[in-house]
């Protein structure tokens, strides 16, 4: 078994965490990797906590369970910090990125003083400014890719542009905004 990267997403129903995990899978697939992207399905309710997962490897992936010891965690909704143990099993060699206007230093206190990398990005602000609506998933995707460096930046953005053109074929007006949101999050994410 080669080195496998595992990512866990925490979001709320309707915020697009599942879509973000599938977009991430797609981006890594485009670079030649083996990927998995899957949500943990529960009762589908808007606003309910949900989890989604990614595995990325240079070799075929055989394991088909949830992820308990992720390398990285993405928190799409800051309010989840109060109710979900987001750092459970998170490796200290990895990192966590949270959607919040707060600094990484402030947020670390809410993460049981997690020792690995902590990143923060104001995905709400970026989303509202670039898309006119609150869709935090694309900025969070940008932020986690900036933290992990799994794909070279320009290649990732190009790959995502292609995905957006495919995904938003029926509403092309949102493509540019999503690309801008993605790029801004990659620039604005603060990591400590």
């Amino acid at each position: 078994m080669g080195k496998m990267i595992e990512i866990r997403w925490h979001g709320r129903g309707g915020q697009g965490a599942k879509t973000a995990s599938l977009l991430l899978a797609e981006a890594l697939f485009n670079t030649g990797k083996y990927i998995q992207g899957f949500p943990e399905y529960g009762p589908e309710r808007s606003g309910a906590p949900l989890t989604a997962y990614n595995r990325i490897s240079d070799e075929p992936i055989r394991v088909h369970s949830n992820i308990y010891e992720p390398d990285y965690v993405v928190v799409v909704d800051e309010t989840l910090l109060a109710s979900v143990d987001v750092t459970a099993g998170l490796k200290e060699t990895g990192g966590i990125v949270v959607n919040t206007p707060k600094s990484p230093e402030e947020i670390r206190h809410y993460l049981k003083d997690y020792k690995g990398k902590v990143g923060t990005v104001d995905a709400k602000k970026i989303s509202e400014e670039e898309l006119g609506r609150y869709f935090p998933n694309v900025p969070m995707l940008g932020a986690i890719m900036a933290m992990t460096g799994l794909v070279e930046k320009e290649q990732f953005i190009k790959s995502m542009e292609e995905s957006f053109h495919h995904k938003f074929a029926t509403k092309p007006e949102v493509i540019d905004g999503n690309v801008r949101a993605l790029k801004r999050a990659m620039e604005e994410v603060r990591i400590s």
Binding site: I35, Q36, G37, F38, Y41, P60, I61, H64
Partner: peptide, 12 residues
């Protein structure tokens, strides 16, 4: 094949 685990997971 397995519901969700295989049916809804995106893989190569």
């Amino acid at each position: 094949y397995d519901g969700f685990i295989t049916s809804h997971s995106v893989e190569n």
